[in-house]
């Protein structure tokens, strides 16, 4: 069994939002407010024209972190949110009672209510649409012009993601919460 994670060369990100649109098309995410599995965070510019802080304008692509110790999973009353054998955090819509507790519990704003199924939805690492079909990349990764994302098996020391993480320093978001997130932002 793999333990899937994603490394992000986030300095490559140009905020083109190809990943967002690819995810919507790949996963049939409705084009409604609040419906997104993936996003790119931007900050308002710091400084006064013409002295804008370039660092303040770094883009932060993000999605579900597939936490190894996922608060959303802990709080789910019906185990609708569960870990897949490959270490991905998944929602089983047949068991979701739409209590939205998990949405409150996720520290990363990764979840939303899908108006079609009226259950909670979020990034699946494209496991049903792509990995199940033998693809080895996610839609957001494949489409990215500057190849921000590297998806792969953290348990395989030869995988590109493992090699990258061995070679580079990285940071994870809100690590102090003990969620053990599996998105790695390469510095």
């Amino acid at each position: 069994m793999a333990r899937y994670g994603m490394a992000l060369n986030y300095k490559n990100c140009i905020n083109c939002r190809a990943c967002e649109s690819a995810c919507k098309e790949e996963n049939g995410v409705l084009l409604l407010p609040d419906h997104y599995r993936i996003w790119v965070g931007v900050k308002e510019a710091e400084g006064e024209y013409p002295n804008i802080s370039i660092a303040s304008q770094t883009y932060h692509p993000s999605q579900c972190q597939h936490c190894e110790n996922a608060p959303c999973q802990l709080v789910c009353p019906t185990n609708a949110t569960h870990y897949s054998p490959d270490g991905m955090v998944m929602v089983d819509p047949t068991r979701c009672i739409l209590c939205t507790y998990c949405i409150n519990a996720c520290p990363y704003d990764a979840r939303y209510v899908d108006q079609r199924t009226m259950t909670v939805d979020k990034c699946t690492f494209c496991s049903d649409t792509r990995l199940a079909n033998g693809e080895t990349t996610t839609a957001c990764q494949a489409t990215c012009p500057t190849k921000v994302r590297v998806f792969g098996d953290l348990d395989d020391p030869n995988s590109e993601i493992s090699q990258l993480l061995a070679k580079h320093e990285y940071r994870r978001v809100k690590e102090h919460l003990g969620t053990k997130p599996k998105l790695f932002y390469i510095l």
């Binding site: 009353p77 019906t78 009672i97 739409l98 209590c99 009226m118």
Partner: peptide, 11 residues
Amino acid sequence: IGHPVTMLIYN
């Protein structure tokens, strides 16, 4: 709660 019946079952 969106799905009370589901709740009764899967609880």
